[in-house]
Every structure is written in structure tokens, then in C-alpha cells.
């Protein structure tokens, strides 16, 4: 199928973009950085076409549904969202080097999906045949993607602030490329400010759907509970900045832990725990 080929090409573009960003980090050549961004946007566009085609192909095989219904499709969409959020932040704030810490997430997702996940278009079980599926998955994954960007920025913050506190400039060359810690902190907050309302909306649409389909908006199913855990962690992050002694490194750690919990919510729950959202499981 054509869409499958295009997804492979997308992966190659993301890989090239990641390599360019690493090169930018090491060599500080402005054009290499620009290439990283352009490659990411190209991959993004190709992936958009591929997603549209896969959607169309699903109708051709008689299963017609938006490509957000199994693990493969969701991982691919997750990567796409990460590139989108990164692209927007890059356009707005022009700290290109962040790409070196964000594009690897997108690349990892695409590679994993293309190499290891079953790519068949699968039929939609009755519980998933609803428009709520689209709203719910879309908002959740855009939120997750914003958290991925926040996590990348926080890792940069942690690296930079550690070297600053030690006042060594052994890695000075590389770190000089990083935005100042204050800007990183600000970006981390900005990304979470985008992600948090999206996650909130994701949880609410999930609850609305559950209420519509099963008559209970909240049943403490593991997936629901984990999304709430993630929500608590980012709520803690938002309040940390109003509390003395909780800014800077601690806030950055909260953001990293928040993303780890996000990934567990997304994948860990399906792989290790059981519940309603079994559609995401590997078999």
C-alpha cells in the first residue's frame, strides 16, 4: 500500500532531521540547524499525506475508520503530533537546538511503529465505533506530544543548570548552544501550558464517551487512573512555581517524571495492566 511506503519515507526524514540537529549541536552551523527544521517539516507533510491515504485505504478494505484505532496508528500519530508541537515552538521561539532533544522522540516512535508493530488496518470493535474516539484520541495525543517537548526541554535544563552550578566549562562548547536556563524554564512552562488543557480535555472527552457508551463517566479503570496521575503531576508542576524552593531543577524533574508517567499511561498500562483500553494491546 502506498501509505505504508510514505510512512517509511517519513521515518527517513525524521531520522535525517535528528541527525541534522545533532550536527547542529556539535558544529553550530546555522544552515545545518535550518536543514533539521526543514527536514522535520517535510517529514510532517509526507506523514499528513500518508495518514490521509491510510484513512482512505481503510474504506477500500471495508473497515472505514480514522487511523487512530490500534497501537500502530496511535504511535504514528503521536510522532506526528510531537513534530507539530516542536515545529510550532520552533517557529515561535526560534530555539532550534531543542530539535536535538525532541526529534529523537518522534524518530523513536516512528521507528518502533514501522519495525515492530503490526501495521494492518484492523476492524473497530463495537465499543470504539463512535465519534468520541476521534475527539478523545486527538486531544490526548496532542497533549502527550506537548509533554514530550516539555520533557526534552527539561532534560536540556537539567544538563545546563548542572554544568552552570559546577561552573565548569568542559562541555561549554556544546552547552553554549543551549538557550539560557531561564528561557528553557519558560519554554518548559509554555509547553505544559499547551499540554495541560489538552490532557484535561482528553480526560473529559474520555469520561463523556464512557458515560455515553457505558453509563459511567469514571470507573477507576487503570488507564483512566493513570491519566489522572499524569494530570496530578502536571498540576503539581503548575503550582510548583508559586511555592518557594520548588522552581528550577525540581520543576524540571517534575516535567520529566510527568512525561515518564505519560508514557506509562500510554504504553505501560496496555502492556502491564489490564482494562477497558485493551485495543492498544500488542495482540
Amino acid at each position: 500500500m502506498l501509505s505504508a511506503k510514505l510512512f517509511n519515507i517519513t521515518t527517513i526524514f525524521y531520522m535525517a532531521s535528528t541527525v541534522a540537529f545533532f550536527g547542529y549541536l556539535a558544529g553550530r552551523n546555522r544552515y545545518v540547524g535550518l536543514a533539521g527544521t526543514l527536514l522535520a517539516w517535510c517529514g510532517f507533510a509526507i506523514q499528513g499525506v500518508a495518514t490521509g491515504l491510510r484513512w482512505k485505504e481503510s474504506y477500500a478494505v471495508g473497515l472505514g475508520h480514522i487511523p487512530l484505532a490500534n497501537l500502530y496508528e496511535s504511535v504514528v500519530f503521536f510522532s506526528w503530533s510531537i513534530v507539530l508541537i516542536f515545529g510550532i515552538i520552533d517557529l515561535k521561539y526560534k530555539y532550534r537546538v531543542i530539535g536535538a532533544f525532541v526529534m529523537p522522540f518522534a524518530l523513536l516512535g516512528m521507528t518502533w511503529a514501522q519495525l515492530y508493530l503490526p501495521t494492518d488496518i484492523s476492524p473497530l470493535m463495537p465499543a470504539l465505533q463512535s465519534n468520541w474516539l476521534t475527539y478523545h484520541v486527538l486531544t490526548c495525543f496532542l497533549g502527550y506530544a506537548a509533554f514530550a517537548v516539555a520533557c526534552g526541554v527539561s532534560i536540556m535544563y537539567l544538563i545546563k543548570s548542572r554544568s552552570e552550578s559546577k561552573a565548569t566549562d568542559a562541555a561549554g562548547g556544546l552547552l553554549a548552544m543551549f538557550p539560557p536556563t531561564k528561557a528553557l524554564d519558560e519554554l518548559n512552562y509554555k509547553a505544559i501550558m499547551v499540554g495541560f488543557p489538552l490532557l484535561t480535555l482528553g480526560i473529559i472527552t474520555g469520561a463523556a464517551w464512557a458515560n455515553y457508551a457505558w453509563g459511567t463517566y469514571w470507573s477507576w479503570d487503570p488507564k483512566e487512573t493513570w491519566s489522572l496521575i499524569v494530570w496530578f503531576i502536571y498540576a503539581a508542576f503548575l503550582h510548583a512555581r508559586f511555592t518557594k524552593g520548588w522552581v528550577g531543577r525540581r520543576a524540571a524533574w517534575l516535567s520529566v517524571i510527568g512525561f515518564a508517567a505519560t508514557i506509562f499511561c500510554y504504553l505501560g498500562v496496555n502492556l502491564f495492566l489490564s482494562g477497558l483500553h485493551s485495543y492498544g494491546s500488542l495482540n
Binding site: I229, F232, I233, A235, A236, H239, T243, W246, A261
Partner: peptide
């Protein structure tokens, strides 16, 4: 903060 983290 304590409550949010403990609840999580």
C-alpha cells in the same frame, strides 16, 4: 503540592 503528589 503534597496532596497532588500523594494522590498521584
Amino acid at each position: 503540592l503534597f496532596l497532588l503528589i500523594t494522590l498521584a
